[in-house]
Nucleic acid binder design. Sequence first.
DNA 1: TGCTGGTTAGTAATCATTAACTAAATTTGT
DNA 2: ACAAATTTAGTTAATGATTACTAACCAGCA
Lengths: 193, 193
Amino acid sequence: MQTERQQEIISTALDLISEKGIQGLTIKNLSKKLGITEPAIYRHFENKIQILIALLDLLKKNTSVIFEAELNSDETAVLKVERLFEKHFKSFAEVPSLAAVVFSEEMFRNEEKLIAKISEVIEANNKTLLTILKQGQQNNEIRSDIEAEHLVIFIMGALRLFVKKWQFAKFTFNLQKEGHKLIQSVKLIISKK
Amino acid sequence: MQTERQQEIISTALDLISEKGIQGLTIKNLSKKLGITEPAIYRHFENKIQILIALLDLLKKNTSVIFEAELNSDETAVLKVERLFEKHFKSFAEVPSLAAVVFSEEMFRNEEKLIAKISEVIEANNKTLLTILKQGQQNNEIRSDIEAEHLVIFIMGALRLFVKKWQFAKFTFNLQKEGHKLIQSVKLIISKK
DNA sequence: TGCTGGTTAGTAATCATTAACTAAATTTGT
DNA sequence: ACAAATTTAGTTAATGATTACTAACCAGCA
């Protein structure tokens, strides 16, 4: 559904965001990095919003694939959550710019369409995780003294904050390695007994 | 140390941020809301960066007061954490715009001074919480099977995500009331057995 | 020949900021 | 005590940068 050049543009946009933050994603910077002039961008995208939407769509695809693959696997709930974390860390480690997009919701406040898009991604993932946790509670794998909705907050909160820290530290520590340790603590927290 | 007008300006800036996000904090919007012209702002602040710094200083004062009061109290560690949460929720419920500032680190990426300032606030609070938790572990109140550094991530991650959800929901639910329930789960998670 | 993907040149809007001026309040010198 | 000097806090008008975006044109190619 996307031309080669369109893919090149959104990939370059991602690089730009991870380098300079969402603020750095301007048509000028983008075209410079692509080695073409600014108006040339408009041969491939109607306007900037469409670029951002394409960006969020990519993010959505990347994360929802992870979540849904786990939902439909036949592992224990605890293992599903572990896999969820590991895959996320792997995905971010491979494409750090994705992390930059996830945490820039604040920037999209003005455009109604973008808010909708990003809320959609977040909501869908939360729902999937919630389902996994509830199944785990029914199977007596996951503690039931804390409501699943709260467990989601702990898990997603930790995931987000941890990645944010990595980002703040300019990717200087090994996300996958350090992340693996965090996952062990997550397991201790959500497991029954 | 601040004139009345300066306080008026930063208070108005906070309102603006909670209304339209950090993007909405322009000199034009600010002066319009204050009922003066744009250049008049510069009679009170050297430039926009100074306004943002004043904003972050206020945030720093607000949060560090909370953290340090708890550190020096002689309650149990678990109770300290509970109080920490409650006070934060209260503070945000009273001045919702503060919450908007806390989560806009992303916006400050370009200005070195602002990154430094906000990292300072976050770091200081994390350190205080870490101390509280370690003391709790030594007193056998708080579980020791998870390292305190990870507990900090769970606690701060949950706090941040929860407030962010409230913000996203346009303050439609009662932060203090719903927050109180979350606190009970936090206690279950960090308590020894 | 006509589409694709570029170019150059330019526009309108918005951004923070400055220059120059002014009225009113305050401080200072006698 | 009071006029002169200065400071304070505002104004209008403008500037240079940067933003997203457009119009008009052109080369290569199917």
